[in-house]
């Protein structure tokens, strides 16, 4: 796999067990939309940027269907909290906790995200 080349602009980073992992330039993140990133261990993360500029990372796999598509969902605010709605069957996931808002038994992994 080829990883994106380094540049001098602000970078989006995710916290992994081994430390901060650089994903891409901040400018590639359109506010309100997500991108998918591949981690060194093969997992996929959906990274989002909200309107206020805050960053979020959650597992990219839709736990209901198995496809890796959460990064392609539409984001929104529910009772002041940010979420993404899966593009497949529209279940919503809280971006800060990974909790599914439509099924309390389901939660996806979250990742701390920052710019550097």
């Amino acid at each position: 796999m080829t990883l994106a080349p380094e540049t001098t602009d602000l970078k989006v980073q995710l916290r992994l067990a081994e430390g901060w992992f650089t994903v891409c330039e901040l400018s590639l993140l359109v506010p309100g939309r997500g991108v998918a990133a591949l981690l060194p261990d093969g997992r996929q993360v959906a990274v989002f940027r909200d309107r206020a500029g805050r960053l979020y990372g959650i597992d990219n796999r839709d736990p209901f269907c198995g496809a890796a598509v959460l990064s392609r969902g539409l984001t929104g605010t529910h009772r002041g909290r940010p979420y993404v709605a899966s593009p497949l069957l529209k279940q919503r996931f809280d971006l800060t906790s990974g909790q599914c808002l439509d099924d309390t038994t389901v939660r996806v992994q979250t990742y701390e995200a920052r710019t550097a």
Binding site: M1, T2, L28, A36, A37, L38
Partner: peptide
């Protein structure tokens, strides 16, 4: 692209 940090890698689940 499937991955913003690995544009040449296809999504392995597909």
């Amino acid at each position: 692209v499937s991955f913003v940090n690995a544009p040449d890698t296809p999504d392995p689940v597909v």
